[in-house]
Simulated assay, not measured.
Amino acid sequence: MQEFEFIHRVTDMLPSQAEGLLCGIGDDCAVFAGNGGRDWLISTDGFTEGVHFQAAWASPSDIGRRCLEAAVSDIAAMGGRPRYVMVSISIPNTMSESDAMAYMQGISASAADYQMIIIGGDTTTSKQGLHLAITVIGDVRHGASLYRRGARVGDVVYVTGVLGGSMAGLNVLETKRTGYQEEVNRFLRPTARVASGAWLSDTGCVTSMIDVSDGLIQDLGHVAKASGVGLVVESGSIPCWQTEKGAVNIETACASGEEYELAFTVDGLRDSAFQRLLPAALGQLGHPITRIGQVVAGSGVIVRKPDGGVLSLDKSGYAHCIGKSA
């Protein structure tokens, strides 16, 4: 089964409510009511050599940094700020001490960029490959978390940055081509949109948000399902990765995972106000924010072509396969 079916089955087995718990399984972070006008955000991500990365692709430090950025992206998706991190690492016996330390140095360097403190974790040996589990703890102004479930009919869909560069970079690494360093850097050195997420929360205009970790269309599908709505994305509006060598195709932009951009919806009645706020913010945030669609009655996500037809996608994003059918 795919990972999302597995998560759904596990969720059905577990209690869903607890004192102080504002949001449990089903969003980018768990949210707990805090003190002093702040709520706590907690998220865990796992990274497995051979699945999430290949050791030959980059230095251990770069891989460590990449994993931390991916984990922090969940905090950004809720509109919060990362504060603390816990790291569990399983190190194969064949790895040198210097490489093992370099993974942690990369994680530490990325944490320092956000003024985060590493407060603990666990260290074990692994019989095969490196495994990392990173738990990030952040906070957000009380009641200001941006959930997947808040989109409403009439809202407008936006995305930060440009899409497709990560998949293009992964393809370069897998095929061992040369001369595409920008794409490789886009895959190996993502940046969590923490400042952007916090700004979006502060506008008071955003109704839902998710980070693009599995692919734009697949991740927007989570928003549609959680909110009980449909989403129409205009193919001609999707911002595609482009360099001097050309642009990725729309299918790649729709399905590219590990982009760590933010896809979000804006209250349709406040979209004009949001548009007025954008020009001043874009210079500070350093990336585009693009209107790409609208929220409609119905379910799921469709990508509409300029001629009004529906774009058929072979792949909407990435999902892990869990277990083997009996």
Rank of each mutant, 00 (worst) to 15 (best):
W199A: 08
A100G: 15
K324V: 15
R65K: 04
E174A: 13
R152M: 02
G317T: 00
A273G: 09
Q128I: 06
I217S: 03
F187H: 11
L146C: 01
G268F: 02
V162Q: 13
L282D: 12
K305V: 04
S237L: 04
R304S: 07
T290R: 09
L163Y: 08
F274N: 04
A255T: 00
I210D: 08
L231E: 04
S16C: 06
G46C: 08
V51E: 07
V157D: 06
T11R: 11
A280L: 11
R38F: 07
G37Y: 08
D219M: 01
G204K: 08
N171K: 14
D99F: 00
K176A: 09
G64A: 09
V310G: 01
A109E: 13
W40G: 00
L188N: 08
N249S: 10
G246F: 01
A18E: 14
I118C: 13
L173H: 11
E234A: 09
C23P: 02
L188I: 03
A77D: 12
R141T: 08
G179S: 09
L277P: 07
M116S: 12
S325E: 15
G106K: 04
F264Y: 12
G323D: 14
E234C: 04
G20C: 04
A77C: 14
R152C: 07
I42V: 15
L173G: 14
A280W: 05
R291L: 05
V296I: 11
M78C: 10
G300C: 13
